[in-house]
Amino acid sequence: MDPIIILQAGVASGTVLLFATIGEIITERSGVMNLGLEGMMLIGAMSAFGVTVTTGNGFLGLLVAMLVAGLLALLHGVVTIHFQADQVVSGLALTFLGTGLSLVFGEGLNKAGAISLLPVQSVPVLSAIPILGPIFFTNHSIMVYVGYLLVPAVWAYIHFTRPGLHLRAVGENPTAADAMGLNVYRLRYLYVFVGGTLAGLAGGTISLAISPGWFSELTTSGQGWIAIGLVIFAQWDPWRAAFGAYTFGALRRMILDIQGPQALLGLRNPFFFNPYLGFFLQMLPYLFTIVVLIIGSREALRKRLGAPAALGLPYIRGERGA
């Protein structure tokens, strides 16, 4: 129960949630909600692992994972953007499809032997900082550092660049964006694809770095849905998403570690003496997601902030919109 270790591991496993959450933020900012994260992450995890097993190249694995998950997301794009299907139902369909595809194509992958994982690195100077160094900059998979770079990059892209302005425009008011001369359909397809690739990256990060291997549906165990909850908690802001993702990562690690010691804060540790109480610990991430959602919703009501105005609505050119 060393807090530094818990936080260090929390940053590592939170990186998975971070990629998925940021991807969904980008997609939702463009006005499309994609509830298929779980399916895209699973197919990403499966294809990253499968490609790495056959080629021995982890980076190729990640690339394929991003591409496959991105293509799957485009399917959601076609159905919701052009066919105007309900985004909730299409997202659920994507979850089923992604899960089914990864189970079928991943058959037998769980028996694959050890593979070379993505490299682990410490950052030379920064790792010497007390407390922060060991937590953020020591012995992390390079994907963790990619996460550090992604957060400010996406934040700056959304708020300070012209394409970022266009992204927000098609999500807030597609009719006006169209009148400005933006191609609403093309931009939405683009950002649905980008969100998919990040979900694939999240899946690949699980199977190649954070908890290596392919364990069918247990590989993601609902993290895609937790990420969707985090998007609402984050109020579609990358910095808050990072905070939420790392906190959740730490929580997941704490649940494992809390069952170890005999004494907790000087008292008998009930989780050590009755391992069945672990079932209640397993509920915590999911209960915590609900709490986080309640916090996010209350804040949205109070500040009158919230989801992109056109989120979930199909845009039909030439018809009066919302």
């Binding site: 159905v79 066919f83 309900d86 089923f96 089914g100 595809l101 189970l103 079928v104």
Partner: peptide
């Protein structure tokens, strides 16, 4: 076999249906 087939078919059905 493989075990994911029923799930896969269900997913495809829902997709083609809404499309």
């Amino acid at each position: 076999q493989p075990a994911g087939v029923p799930r896969l078919i269900q997913g495809i059905i829902l997709f083609t249906l809404i499309a």
